Simulated scan of single mutants.
Amino acid sequence: MPTIKISVYQKDLHKKFTKDQLAKIAAQRANFLLLPEGFPHFFRAQTPNDAAKHEKEYQDHLLEISETYQGVIMGGSHYRKNAEGKLVSSSPIVQSLVLVDFYDKKNPSSKEAEITKGETESIFIMGGLRFGILVGEDINDTLIWNQFKTEGLEVVFHLSSEESGRTYEEDLDFFSKISKEMKMHIIRVCGISEGKPGRSLYASPSGINWKVGKSEEDTEVFKTLSVTVKENFFL
């Protein structure tokens, strides 16, 4: 069975990657790099509409990462206007200096009243892998999970910075339960900002394979995981 290397970067949403950090990412030669919901957010805009004005600057930083890292970047998320001119929260998918596609968040939070519900696909094939994407509150969307199960997905990426209200232990139980029920690998990456806890983790059907410790909830953490799949790797 093939093994996929997935790098997770629990990142401060307001800080760019340094040259040393970019070199560290590239050295791992992972198939995927996951960045948290809300990264990058350098301009600290007060509203999604104001943040959307900096769409190009955010995307440029992701392309800067792609200059040295050759894998697929699940580029966090930022606000932008879609083809219909509606404001959405989007996760760019970048590879080899190309912005390949977007996943638009399906379940904007209560603080995102301006944001339109996304209508993009939730399943993608990149880097030889067929996988699902969830941003923030999408983790609670039963319809998306049912689609993942019907399609026989093995790997789901969760780009997170939502305020769930769960404790550290409750978070572990929550993701462990979903992974076991769905028989899927869930790789979650969290952002650090304004006191939100960073609880990046890797849940497999057998339990929690890796997690950020309690003492690291407010710390930038870089980890490369090895995930073994049965059928959905095409390289």
Score class of each variant (00 low, 15 high):
3 T>L: 07
6 I>W: 01
6 I>A: 07
7 S>D: 04
17 F>L: 13
18 T>F: 09
18 T>P: 02
19 K>W: 07
20 D>L: 13
22 L>P: 01
31 N>M: 05
36 P>G: 13
37 E>H: 04
38 G>D: 10
39 F>T: 02
39 F>Y: 13
39 F>A: 05
41 H>S: 13
42 F>D: 12
44 R>V: 05
45 A>G: 11
47 T>L: 11
47 T>S: 14
51 A>T: 03
54 H>R: 09
55 E>V: 06
58 Y>T: 04
59 Q>M: 11
60 D>W: 00
60 D>I: 00
63 L>C: 10
63 L>I: 09
64 E>H: 03
64 E>Q: 08
65 I>M: 09
66 S>L: 13
68 T>M: 12
71 G>N: 11
72 V>G: 00
72 V>K: 00
72 V>Q: 00
73 I>G: 00
74 M>R: 01
76 G>N: 12
77 S>D: 04
78 H>Q: 15
78 H>C: 14
78 H>L: 15
80 R>Q: 11
84 E>D: 10
84 E>K: 09
88 V>Y: 02
90 S>G: 07
91 S>F: 03
92 P>A: 15
92 P>H: 15
94 V>M: 03
99 L>N: 07
100 V>W: 12
100 V>L: 15
104 D>W: 05
105 K>A: 15
106 K>Y: 08
106 K>F: 10
106 K>E: 06
109 S>A: 14
112 E>L: 00
118 G>L: 12
120 T>G: 05
120 T>P: 01
123 I>N: 09
124 F>E: 03
126 M>N: 05
135 V>L: 12
139 I>W: 05
142 T>C: 02
142 T>D: 09
144 I>A: 10
146 N>H: 06
146 N>G: 08
147 Q>T: 14
151 E>G: 02
151 E>P: 01
151 E>H: 08
152 G>C: 07
154 E>N: 04
157 F>D: 11
164 S>W: 07
164 S>R: 07
165 G>H: 08
166 R>V: 03
166 R>G: 01
176 S>W: 04
176 S>E: 14
179 S>Q: 08
179 S>V: 01
183 K>S: 10
184 M>Y: 01
186 I>W: 09
193 S>K: 10
194 E>M: 08
200 S>F: 06
200 S>P: 02
201 L>D: 02
201 L>A: 11
202 Y>W: 15
202 Y>H: 14
202 Y>D: 00
204 S>Y: 03
205 P>R: 15
205 P>I: 07
206 S>R: 07
207 G>W: 05
209 N>A: 15
209 N>Y: 09
210 W>S: 05
210 W>M: 05
211 K>N: 10
212 V>K: 12
213 G>C: 06
215 S>M: 11
216 E>A: 12
216 E>T: 02
217 E>A: 14
218 D>Q: 15
219 T>G: 04
219 T>C: 11
220 E>L: 14
220 E>M: 13
221 V>I: 05
221 V>H: 03
228 T>D: 12
228 T>S: 15
232 N>T: 01
233 F>Y: 09
234 F>G: 00
235 L>D: 01
